[in-house]
């Protein structure tokens, strides 16, 4: 009897904390999302009227930003996967005794604040940086083309910032593959491509799923890259939520947008996990 209580006692403090500061706020946010302005009240005063139209209004008004968020997040997740997979594979199978060192180097850029690094990109790609003048003098881009304040810069910044989130889970599952399975595949006359498609990739699927989720979710809600590297035409849904909250003090719309974003992500994630067929994620 005493033994059966142990797990619950261990869970109690942590789950009590998560309930108070994660579940309750989410419930409260749901409640805020259907409020409307008190007639004749001050800015920021709202009452509950179960006004579900908030959701439709908020979505219709900001559908471009929603679309952009999911488009940018998808592109940068795919780019990060394309960059991180060979990198993780090289660290797992080709780095010999330097494996741990290289793994540390993947995480190391993390410790320079990500804002500093994003701003560094802005300056590298900006007018005063060395990239734009070089590309211009080589004739690769026209004299009037800029690299910052574009969708390209935002997507590149997101890909860059979430790359370690993609690389680490990929490495964890590729590193677990027994190299003998790859040799066996070669012995059975599979060429490199077939071995990759039939052996390496399926065995590394848990890492692919975890990495894409850890990249896609923060990317879809991100607004820092868009505000540093983009311009008003590259605004994402995160930018809208932020400004609704702080600049316009429109809590119901911000809440409705947050909820729509969260629901969309959860639905996509569930579908994706179903399709990818890995349940043991956490």
């Amino acid at each position: 009897m005493g033994k059966n209580r142990t797990p619950y006692l261990l869970l109690l403090p942590g789950f009590g904390f998560l309930f108070t500061f994660f579940i309750l706020p989410i419930i409260n946010l749901a409640q805020t999302s259907t409020q409307t302005k008190i007639a004749g009240g001050d800015t920021g005063q709202y009452e509950q009227t179960l006004h579900f139209r908030n959701y439709i209004d908020a979505f219709v008004e900001n559908k471009d930003q929603f679309g952009r968020s999911f488009l940018f997040a998808t592109i940068s997740t795919l780019l990060a996967l394309a960059i991180a997979y060979p990198l993780a594979y090289a660290i797992a199978f080709k780095s010999g005794k330097y494996k741990n060192l290289l793994l540390v180097l993947v995480v190391a850029p993390f410790f320079t604040s990500f804002l500093l690094r994003t701003i560094a990109w802005k300056q590298i790609l900006g007018e005063e940086g060395f990239v734009v003048p070089t590309l211009r003098s080589l004739g690769i881009i026209s004299q009037s083309t800029t690299l910052t304040s574009t969708s390209f810069a935002v997507v590149m910044g997101m890909t860059y910032n979430f790359l370690p989130f993609m690389t680490l889970p990929l490495f964890a599952s590729i590193d677990r593959i027994d190299p003998r399975t790859l040799e066996a595949s070669g012995d059975l006359y599979a060429n490199g491509y077939t071995t990759f498609r039939k052996v390496t990739l399926p065995l590394s699927m848990p890492g692919v799923v975890a990495g894409t989720l850890l990249t896609f979710i923060p990317a879809a809600g991100d607004y820092v890259n868009a505000s540093i590297l983009g311009d008003p035409t590259t605004k994402m849904i995160g930018n809208v939520i932020e400004s609704r909250f702080f600049k316009i003090v429109d809590y119901p719309t911000a809440a409705a947008l947050s909820f729509t974003l969260m629901a969309a992500i959860l639905i996509l994630v569930t579908l994706y996990i179903r399709k990818a067929g890995t349940e043991e994620l956490v």
Binding site: L18, L29, A220, F245, A255, L261
Partner: peptide, 27 residues
């Protein structure tokens, strides 16, 4: 309730930071 516990641990990671931040602030 073990799988429900796993879900409760996964949820904060699946919630975009902006939603976490905004919901806590509104609380």
């Amino acid at each position: 309730g073990r799988s429900a516990s796993n879900l409760l641990i996964f949820l904060p990671m699946a919630t975009p930071e902006i939603v976490l931040g905004a919901s806590l602030l509104s609380l």
